[in-house]
Design a protein around this nucleic acid. Sequence first.
DNA 1: ATAATATAGCTTCCAAGGAAGATATATCCT
DNA 2: AGGATATATCTTCCTTGGAAGCTATATTAT
Lengths: 168, 168
Amino acid sequence: MDHVARIQQEWARERPDVDVAPAGVIGRLHRVAGHLTERLCLVYRRFGLAEGEFDVLATLRRAGAPYERAPGELAAHTMVTTGAMSKRIDRLEQAGLVTRRPSESDGRGRVVALTTAGLELIDAAFTEHMANERRLLDALAPEDAERLEAILTTWLAVFELPVGEPPT
Amino acid sequence: MDHVARIQQEWARERPDVDVAPAGVIGRLHRVAGHLTERLCLVYRRFGLAEGEFDVLATLRRAGAPYERAPGELAAHTMVTTGAMSKRIDRLEQAGLVTRRPSESDGRGRVVALTTAGLELIDAAFTEHMANERRLLDALAPEDAERLEAILTTWLAVFELPVGEPPT
DNA sequence: ATAATATAGCTTCCAAGGAAGATATATCCT
DNA sequence: AGGATATATCTTCCTTGGAAGCTATATTAT
């Protein structure tokens, strides 16, 4: 019996009037997510990065040469506010991993770009990161992993629009 | 195509040497978890609580009368440090929802207990919270929800010992 | 053309939690 | 019994991100 099952048991005793079955999914999902985050952060830290900083570098890297994005784009891609993104960029700029310059196409805007050092670092870090994710996922049987991906894809679609659709 | 699939596509173009399949699960799991947290926090806020504070009150409630626990126990149950727990208890004590007194059985320890107001609040909040979780989970077909729970249970066991087992 | 409204990105204030450290007590070893 | 070590809880310092606010620019409405 795991921790979540114990919790459900206790609620059944204390509040038998309440349906606590959903906690079996949502509680475990949050706990797994927390553990995964801990494990992922171990690799980030080996490259001197926090989770948020890794996200920024990775987003710039997968944008392809010249590895540039506007701060607002970066914020939208990584689910944080523009304020938090500004601070992440500050930190990465300070570390010499990105540069920031005014945008040519929008007088209000900025362009954030990977430096050579930033590109080298994220390439190495990403390789390790994905190996880490592979190890974590391999704790599941392949058919479980497949089914999990399918179910999560369905559930995620409840919260997010497909990419490329206009908002309704 | 969802955001995670787009990300995988971009990595396939930029780093075809790296296996990015695990991101299909881990990326989506984190995004779903983030969305669930947002939705859950809406209900907490209706009762004037933050996520951490709700967790503490709920843990005390399900302990059963007299709704008491030591701070260290609370910290272990809710996956935060004792420092963070101390501050949560501070906030709840300030709000008149819990009391803190020296422990009778350990001179170093404290006992945290629900007040009458705390008990009333968490009973109401928990009912709404579980209805919220039920609504969120009902976005999935029942057989998907069942399979998801089974898979998450398997995966969680990789990270956590069963309850009641001594550490090896 | 001009005014009203919206937006991009940064700054400041605030909140929450981690890490390190401090004090008092409990437990273990000799 | 006394000293060494471990533990419970709180406090302080630091980090990160959200919310609110600000300035400059862009877009929309008249």
